[in-house]
Simulated scan of single mutants.
Amino acid sequence: MRAGAWVATLHAVAMRPAEETVSSAPPWGDAEAGRRPPTPSGPPPRTGRSPSLALVDEGSADLRPTLTLTVLDAAGAHLGGRALDLGLAGLELLTLLQRHPRGLNAEELAAELRGDRGSSATVRVLVHRVRKRLGPWIDAAPYRLTVPVDTDARHVEALLTRGAVRAAAHAYPGPLLPQSEAPGIVREREALDAWVRHAVISSDDPEALWAWVRTRSGQDDAPAWKRLLANVPYSDPRRSLAASRLLLLRAAYSSRP
């Protein structure tokens, strides 16, 4: 072979692409080619989430009924639209639990309901009686409500928080459970009453003032009547009522010993 042809042959061999070595073993490492590992049988592994949480995560509706408490200048309770006959003591219990969403133990609840005269045994009896009408919606240790709660008092507080004083005054018919003498209820009643009064008088809104003086809490509130008198037009018939009411209140105050 001539030297030129021999060099050309060597060059062609050098430029030929090398053959790739492909493993015949499957990517999952099974020793037997073409055979997949067996599919595991039995339930899938746990993920740490309970079925109930999975349902909630998927947007399932909350099927619990709503507890509605009417506690402003009145006393009433409804569960899912059904009236509950609980009596004043039962409403005091539910109102206090609603005001303490994290719950209260038996001793704390006894103090809120009866002060120094309260006892854990009395609380347990009351909770048992309320559960018979309410159902399984009161947890123990601590005692707390496990059902959504809507109250007229909470509605008024929400309006006050937003600065909607006139709407809050119209939504406030009177004090919280006025017949109750439970220490916890008295404290909450006085706090809400003072909040509404301060917001109304500070607003100088004649409509808010008018709503306030027609409540049980505001009917004898001389400063509120005075503000109303100063803020209604001369042609407003409420002006003469405010003036006469102020005269009566001043006479009553002056006759006190």
Rank of each mutant, 00 (worst) to 15 (best):
A8W: 15
L10I: 06
V13G: 15
A14N: 14
M15L: 12
R16I: 02
A18I: 04
E19C: 11
T21R: 14
T21W: 10
V22T: 15
W28Y: 14
D30F: 07
R35F: 09
R36G: 05
R36A: 02
P37G: 14
S50H: 13
V56T: 02
G59F: 01
D62L: 15
T66N: 08
L67S: 15
T68L: 13
T68I: 08
T68H: 14
D73H: 13
A74L: 01
A83N: 14
D85W: 06
G87W: 08
G87C: 01
G87T: 08
E92Y: 04
T95D: 07
L96T: 04
Q98L: 01
Q98E: 15
G103A: 13
L104S: 05
N105L: 09
E108V: 00
L109Q: 02
A111T: 07
L113M: 07
V123T: 04
L126P: 07
G135V: 08
A140C: 02
Y143I: 04
P148G: 06
V149M: 08
D150T: 13
D150P: 00
D150Y: 01
T151F: 02
H155M: 02
V156K: 01
G163K: 04
V165Y: 03
R166P: 00
A168S: 04
Y172R: 06
S180F: 01
P183Q: 13
V186C: 12
V186R: 15
R187A: 09
E190T: 03
D193S: 09
A194F: 11
V196M: 05
R197G: 01
I201L: 13
P206E: 00
L209D: 02
W212P: 10
D220C: 03
P223N: 03
P223A: 04
A230F: 00
Y234Q: 11
R238T: 04
L241V: 14
L241S: 09
A243W: 12
L247W: 12
L248H: 07
A252M: 10
S254F: 10
S255W: 04
